[in-house]
């Protein structure tokens, strides 16, 4: 156990220091030492939080944040190889997209990767998706969950418009609508009519799992 703790600590620091090769190496070693994917994912999230803190201090630039996101995304491929996640029965179906007028998708891509690895059937609509695109996707794919992602502040308006479009199409009540991305803050549900909002990756996974568990109990 102490080895795992030590390796996890090294992994957190390697990610915080943006040491790409070392991150991949430590993910493999930590997995080999018996840590679960969830533990390692939590470690990487702690590492990303450290990156954010260093950025806030002014030591890191936006290029560093981008690089951190790229390392994180690639580390998931090491952590969650496809064969570990294959199951004929999916937990549930999710339609996800970056809402209209926003094109920032690194966070969304990471969430798609995590949810797919966690055995959800994920339909990724892409970026800058109009409300009608979500309506059409819901009509076509009949998902359990719709995830609206956005980074820019204007994305909040698009989120509400998307939810309104789903309501007008008579689809709202059958869906669990989850908001995510940089535009999400703790108060967002006060003025956007979604079911939940997630500010952390782990929170996203937990909320999706909790919902499908309730739905298919």
């Amino acid at each position: 156990m102490s080895d795992i703790t030590s390796l996890e600590s090294e992994l957190i620091n390697a990610l915080a220091q943006l040491d790409e090769d070392r991150v991949y190496d430590l993910v493999r070693k930590t997995l080999d030492s018996g840590a679960t994917s969830e533990q390692i994912l939590n470690d990487m999230n702690v590492g990303m939080q450290k990156v954010g803190t260093i950025f806030e201090s002014g030591e890191y630039f936006i290029a560093d944040l981008m690089f951190a996101g790229m390392i994180y995304r690639s580390a998931l491929d090491v952590l969650l190889p496809p064969q570990t996640s294959v199951s004929s029965v999916k937990k549930g179906r999710i339609v996800i997209g970056v809402v209209e007028n926003d094109i920032h998708d690194i966070g969304k891509d990471i969430v798609v990767c995590l949810l797919s690895a966690d055995n959800f059937d994920v339909i990724d609509l892409g970026i800058d998706m109009k409300p009608q695109a979500f309506v059409s996707a819901v009509q076509r794919y009949h998902p359990d969950i719709v995830m609206l992602s956005g980074m820019m502040q204007i994305a909040r308006d698009s989120m509400q418009k998307t939810i309104d479009a789903l309501k007008n199409a008579g689809l709202r009540d059958q869906l669990y609508i989850l908001l995510g991305g940089g535009c999400v803050d703790p108060d967002i549900l006060d003025y956007i009519d979604a079911d939940a909002a997630a500010m952390e990756l782990s929170d996203t996974l937990e909320k999706c799992n909790a919902y499908v568990s309730r739905r298919y109990q």
């Binding site: 630039f61 936006i62 290029a63 981008m66 690089f67 996101g69 094109i103 920032h104 800058d128």
Partner: peptide, 22 residues
Amino acid sequence: YSLKKYGEKLTQKIFRTMFEHY
């Protein structure tokens, strides 16, 4: 800053990602 820290190849990768949808 990125060129200095990461070199040409990685910087191109970072900025290609950054500007992917622009």
